[in-house]
Amino acid sequence: MCGAKAGGPELAGVDVASETIIQGSVTRDGEPVNGYVRLLDEGGEFTAEVPTSATGQFRFFAAPGTWTLRALVPGASVDRKVVAQQGAFTEVAIAV
């Protein structure tokens, strides 16, 4: 696998209308990074965590509101704040 795919994973088979999706990719110098992404709620409390895919992508099924994404990769940790809405998917590109 080489090169990062822009945006999150394919949405085929996902009921986008009823879910609140936050997804995206983690890259370093444009290349996908193997690591983890944590989803923290408005109070900074852990809600979920996923490993990034081979193409650096991740996805969460959240609830509407403000969330923080924290990318953990060897030697670095990067936070990004996002606002999610039901029926729409929020795309986040995180460069570390």
């Binding site: 709620d41 809600t47 099924f61």
Partner: peptide, 17 residues
């Protein structure tokens, strides 16, 4: 997570709800 406890979410947020 607090969101599952309160009833806002039904599953961990990496799974469909």
């Amino acid at each position: 997570s607090p969101d599952e406890f309160s009833g806002r979410l039904l599953a961990p947020a990496h799974l469909p709800q």
